[in-house]
Write a protein that binds this DNA or RNA. Structure first.
Length: 480
RNA sequence: GGUCCCAUCGUCUAGGCUGGUCUAGGACGGCACCCUCUCAAGGUGCAGACACGGGUUCAAAUCCCGUUGGGAUCACCA
């Protein structure tokens, strides 16, 4: 029974996302996490969050917090962790010493300064800059001075990495360095702690960025030396900026949470990101369920992709238009508050926030666009675009506006449909064209030349403000 | 420079493994028209790509080789 259980856990698919907490969670990190998560959910495996904080100088608790907040916002929940590598330092030391005791590692007393000058010299001579191995045969058993522990890397034959995305990648072992696994300060290095953790945590698939392919042939012999099975690898192509360089602040926000602030819906960001490097025929919009169902490595692109903010906006707009108005309203409310509109402002609108969604969602790509478009309906006295007023609120149209205001005042019910009938009847009797009256009306009601349909505008304003604003518009028009 | 990766419209991509159905499909963006009270949304249409050169083959976007171009990586960072 125990054996069966053990074997089951060994064969189970386990993946991990292992960010280093030296900054915020950026777009590339989210995509790596997403593909790990999607694969885990697709196969019913386990998704582990591991924090690689062995660089004690650059890692901060704040960064860990921000990373987890970002993951939560996009909905990538983890099954185990967060596991911090700094909690496992003893494990790495123990495994490193095990290699030393087995004669698979040696002490190196070359200082970093010496190594650096030697590297530079080698480079100017045009030679290989890898470690020359001078401590390899010194046989230091108990270093008195500060010493680093180096792994004896194989120098003959080849290491083949079986990559789920790129296929087999072959490296000649003679390019392999005797890499340091334990620093002279006693802390394990990245390449070593990663291997120990992936092995001990039974990670079956290492899914990470493309920039790690060259680390892989260094890590594979380490798995073997430690006596562990080598996991499967999947190296994801990079995400590039519009200049095809690394994605950076130049290309807009790089922190996920900045996209939250810019009014993007998390599901839209995820949808955009999943299509960056992965496809399922011609499908563009995927529910989370569909992504999980269809995700596979076979359709992951092997070349890098340029991040396109325009398309992200389009995807966001699709979600804004199709999501339940109530849910959009929930997401929108904090933005309204942030813009200085309180509950009383929102209460001015007949129907509240929800009433705002339908007329504005066809015109909004982000939640910030909603805030902008909703402004005239959330205030008692609005700001008027002077140029618009000068152009549309003329003395010529003033009498018609006034007469329409009287009609509105006499009307008891105040719905979009009734208002439509009212206006249409009015212009017919007056022999006016809709275009003649609609724009002046719009400027009078919203202070702008751009808004939702004129009936929606009046409905959102309510009878009192509608009358008030048309009358104010008439005043202004007569002076024009 | 060494090593490794990559190469279809401006961008994301389908197709490639299992050559013919590809005069290369879809999406974003662009342009035009329609709809129309403005702006959108929506609809219709247009422009736009197999990096180049050699092979293999009756047939190549698809397979092979080379060239060119791009990228990643070469730390006691991760």
């Amino acid at each position: 029974m125990c054996l069966i259980l053990h074997e089951f856990s060994m064969s189970k698919i386990r993946v991990r996302f292992a960010p280093s907490p030296t900054g915020f969670l950026h777009i590339g990190g989210v995509r790596t996490a997403l593909f790990n998560w999607l694969f885990a959910r697709h196969v019913g495996g386990t998704f582990v969050l591991r924090i690689e904080d062995t660089d004690r100088d650059r890692s901060t608790d704040e960064a860990i917090h921000v990373i987890m907040e970002g993951m939560k916002w996009v909905g990538l929940d983890w099954d185990e962790g967060p596991i911090r590598q700094t909690d496992r330092l003893d494990v790495y030391r123990e495994k490193a010493m095990e290699l030393f005791n087995r004669g698979l590692a040696y002490w190196c007393v070359c200082t970093s300064d010496e190594l650096e000058t030697r590297r530079k010299d080698a480079q100017t001579r045009g030679e290989s800059i890898k470690y020359d191995g001078r401590c390899r045969n010194r046989g230091i058993t108990k270093p008195i001075e500060a010493a680093a522990l180096r792994f004896i890397a194989p120098q003959e034959g080849q290491t083949v990495v079986h990559d789920l995305i790129k296929g087999d990648i072959v490296f000649d072992n003679n390019v392999l360095d005797d890499l340091i696994i334990l620093r002279s300060n006693g802390y394990a290095t990245y390449n070593f702690s990663v291997v120990v953790d992936d092995a001990l945590m039974n990670i079956s698939h290492v899914i990470r960025g493309d920039d790690h392919v060259n680390n892989t042939p260094r890590q594979v012999p380490l798995f073997e030396a430690l006596g562990f099975a080598v996991p499967q690898f999947a190296h994801l192509p990079m995400i590039l900026g519009s200049d095809k360089g690394r994605l950076s602040k130049r290309h807009g926000a790089t922190s996920v949470l900045a996209y939250q602030e810019m009014g993007y819906l998390p599901e839209a960001l995820v949808n955009y990101l999943v299509r960056l490097g992965w496809s399922h025929g011609d499908q563009e919009i995927f529910s989370i369920h569909e992504m999980i169902e269809h995700f596979d490595f076979k359709h992951v692109q092997s070349s890098a992709a340029v991040f396109n903010p325009e398309k992200l906006k389009w995807v966001n707009a699709q979600y804004i238009r199709t999501k339940e108005p109530l849910q959009v309203g929930e997401a929108l409310t904090p933005f309204l508050h942030a813009a200085g509109h309180d509950e009383a402002d929102i209460a001015r609108i007949p129907g509240g926030v929800e009433a705002l969604i339908l007329p504005l969602r066809e015109r909004s790509e982000t939640l910030l666009d909603f805030v902008e478009g909703a402004a005239p309906f959330l205030v008692e006295s609005m700001t008027v675009d002077e140029a618009a007023a000068a152009k549309h609120l003329t003395a010529t149209i003033a009498p018609a506006l006034k007469e329409f205001a009287d009609l509105v005042e006499a009307e008891q019910a105040f719905t979009k449909e009734i208002l439509e009938g009212l206006l249409k009847g009015f212009i017919e009797r007056q022999g006016l064209k809709m275009g003649k009256i609609a724009q002046p009306l719009r400027v009078a009601l919203t202070g702008r030349t751009v808004s939702p349909g004129i009936y929606e505008v009046m409905a959102l304003l309510g009878k009192n403000r509608t009358l008030q604003r048309i009358r104010a518009g008439v005043e202004r028009a007569m002076k024009n």
